[in-house]
Simulated scan of single mutants.
Amino acid sequence: MDKNLWQQIQLVRQHSPLVHNITNYVVMNNTANALLAVGASPIMAHAKSEIHEMVNIAHSVVINIGTLDEYWSEAMLLGAEAAHLAKKPWILDPVGAGATGFRDRILNQLLQYKPTVIRGNASEIIALAKANTTVTKGVDSTAKSDEAISAAQFLVDHYQTIVCISGETDIIIDHEKTFLIKNGHPLMTKVTGLGCSATAIIGAFIGVTENATESVAAAMALIGISGEIAVLESKGPGSLQVNLIDKLYNITEEEFSSHLKIERL
């Protein structure tokens, strides 16, 4: 398994996929740097007038509703529709799902364009599936990742998608298998937008692979392992942010393989 995942990482470095991000402005810089570090090429474009052209030249599309507003929601819907019609892989990050009616309405519309992957924390996945009632604390999860498995399975079955539940254990589910990834470090939760960076990295990986589920596992393992290693030379969340970008860029196969903690169910 580790050889297959490392091959996914190498594919991104070799092909440098163009990733069109319609994302939130809190994390744009970090997200772009993370994509560059793994070997991808980021575009951050939100203007409705150029959405279709951008989607057409991109390998994949990332839609992150973190700083949602009326204009950006229209751009996101255009991007999701264009990706769906062009059969381009796209990933949805349902930041703050369940927090407001506005977010939920936009998410319901976005889901109609059947994202290739959905990545969110447990509370967001539960809210998105409406499989349970839970409180979303802003963009932070009040549920553990394993509490969202049934909600994730509902999304997989209903929208023919892959769901990645982020948490202490990352859980990746498709229609026939489940991966558990136990990499990462608690200090990573103190750096804003690392989940958004994970979403963007997944976006890069699904742009160059034929095995989308395996590419999601590779992307989540990569950022988790890079975080583990970066913590060792960091004094706090500020230096971790910098060191993590460096490790995404220079991680070796030996480092990846020796730290990988993955289980297939």
Rank of each mutant, 00 (worst) to 15 (best):
I63A: 11
S258P: 06
D140L: 02
C164N: 06
I173T: 06
A97V: 03
N30P: 05
V139C: 04
T100Q: 06
P94S: 09
E263P: 04
G184A: 06
E263N: 12
P17Y: 14
V231P: 15
N24E: 07
G39W: 01
V19A: 00
K114A: 05
A82V: 00
E254R: 13
P186V: 05
E50R: 10
V95A: 13
G227R: 06
W72N: 13
M54L: 12
I51E: 09
E228A: 13
H46S: 12
L232S: 13
M28E: 10
G203Y: 03
V27S: 12
A219E: 11
E168T: 09
A122W: 01
L68H: 13
V216I: 01
M188D: 04
Q241H: 15
F256I: 00
P186T: 05
N243G: 14
S150A: 10
G236H: 07
I262C: 11
H15V: 11
E254N: 13
S257M: 12
I106R: 02
T142D: 04
I165T: 05
W6A: 13
N33M: 12
D170E: 04
L180T: 06
W6K: 14
T169N: 06
T178S: 08
I126A: 04
N21C: 11
Q8P: 06
L35H: 00
T199F: 00
I225K: 12
A32G: 13
V61T: 15
G184K: 06
I162Q: 04
A82F: 01
T23Q: 00
I181T: 11
I172Y: 04
L240M: 12
I91R: 04
L244Y: 08
I251S: 09
E263A: 13
E50H: 10
L92P: 02
G98W: 03
V135A: 03
H185F: 12
G167C: 05
H52I: 11
Q10A: 10
F179N: 02
N33S: 14
I125M: 05
L232M: 14
I149S: 00
I125N: 04
A204S: 09
I229A: 09
H59V: 07
E70H: 10
T136H: 02
E53L: 12
H52G: 10
V26N: 08
C196H: 02
S73W: 03
E53A: 15
N183W: 07
